[in-house]
Nucleic acid binder design. Structure first.
Length: 351
DNA sequence: AAACCGGGGAT
DNA sequence: ATCCCAGGTTT
């Protein structure tokens, strides 16, 4: 009686769902890969990455025996690179602990690195058809409006309450479609700013719409502002090779390659910090370009100097390597440095 | 609970 | 300029 909205939602999903690559399979491995890629990342962005990844690593075993550098290269540009490292580690856990058979129980899935409440619920419901809710930003928004949830959705307690509500209405025979339908509604109709309520299959059940409060919900606390950081980068060339640094695996952009750089207040500070960080004495020559990059929690304002290498014993603190310019495309370089890389590749030689 | 961790598209 | 996206982990 009071859960007819579930049926209405499922009928709408049958008619209006998008054709997405991961909807052509029930392979838990493929579903898993898609869910990790989709964390905080839009569907359209993920699609080409997903196709390439599954072509290269069709099974858990292919992924488990891969080199992490190749996994990161396939992840290049997607962001949140810890996802790729956890995916790789979890594949090795599945190979060793589960004989390469993806685990079937919720507790085992949840225990894998990189899998939290949302992803465990998504895999259990979508791949295995079991009634575990998968609560992402879409679902929180849909349920907050449907049930007039006026608490901050970023509070763990709110998620717990939404989970309890969903468990009570879960259609046991259509768990996979129900999970996906909730998210699809959030992505296509129940939009954050201007929801398309006239198109909504459950509008008559929506408590927010009844009170004309769609715009006010969900309630979400503000995020802290990103911090600005001045960063000086050195382009150091010897013949057709460029000196590149592989960032430490832990931390920001961990395991990816960068044009060696340091946070510095000015040019003199740059040379000093560079020697401390990399053990190399350089002379900044040509101020090549300025570029900035915005992370969710940090802003890099980068000054790039074509620099001369005077002397240096490489310290253990860094992981410097000479990379031929025509091989820059074979290592994983994050988006923050893509403009710089392009200027090298297009310009051929430096000015 | 808050901070850290990427990148891009929509408004 | 702001929001937020099929979030998880660490502090």
């Amino acid at each position: 009686m009071q859960i007819t909205w579930v049926t209405a939602l499922l009928n709408w999903f049958q008619l209006h769902q998008r054709e997405l690559p991961w909807r052509q399979t029930k392979d838990p491995y493929a579903i898993w890969v898609s869910e990790i890629m989709l964390q905080q990342t839009r569907v359209e962005t993920v699609v080409p990455y997903y196709r390439r990844f599954l072509e290269r690593f069709p099974t858990v075993e292919h992924l488990a025996k891969a080199q992490i550098d190749e996994v990161l290269k396939l992840w290049e540009g997607l962001g949140y690179y810890t996802r790729a490292k956890n995916l790789h580690r979890a594949a090795q856990v599945i190979q060793q602990e589960y004989q390469s058979v993806f685990p079937r129980s919720h507790s085992e899935v949840l225990a894998l690195p990189g899998i939290g409440d949302y992803t465990a619920g998504a895999i259990m419901s979508i791949a295995y058809g079991q009634p575990f809710p998968a609560i992402d930003g879409n679902v929180l928004r849909v349920i907050a409006r449907l049930q007039l949830v006026q608490k901050d959705i970023s509070l763990p307690q709110t998620k717990t309450e939404v989970a309890a509500f969903l468990k009570g209405v879960f259609p046991l025979e259509q768990a996979s479609d129900f999970t996906q339908a909730l998210m699809e509604l959030g992505a296509l109709v129940c939009l954050p700013m201007t929801p398309k309520c006239t198109l909504c299959p459950i509008q008559v059940h929506c408590q927010a719409k009844q009170r004309n409060m769609q715009q006010e919900l969900p309630i979400k606390s503000k995020k802290t502002l990103p911090k600005r950081e001045k960063r000086y980068l050195a382009i150091i060339q010897q013949g057709d090779k460029i000196l590149m640094n592989k960032r430490p695996m832990a931390g920001l952009l961990g395991g990816l390659w960068e044009f060696p750089g340091v946070e510095s207040k000015n040019k003199q500070d740059f040379v000093q910090n560079f020697k401390r960080q990399f053990g190399l004495t350089i002379i900044p020559k040509v101020h090549k370009l300025d570029t900035s990059h915005v992370f969710s929690h940090r802003i890099w304002e980068m000054k790039v100097y074509h620099s001369e290498l005077v002397s240096g014993e490489v310290t253990t603190a860094a992981d410097l390597h000479w990379i031929p310019i025509d091989q820059l495309n074979t290592i994983a370089i994050p988006s923050a440095f893509q403009k710089i890389k392009d200027s090298l590749l297009l310009g051929g030689k430096l000015c």
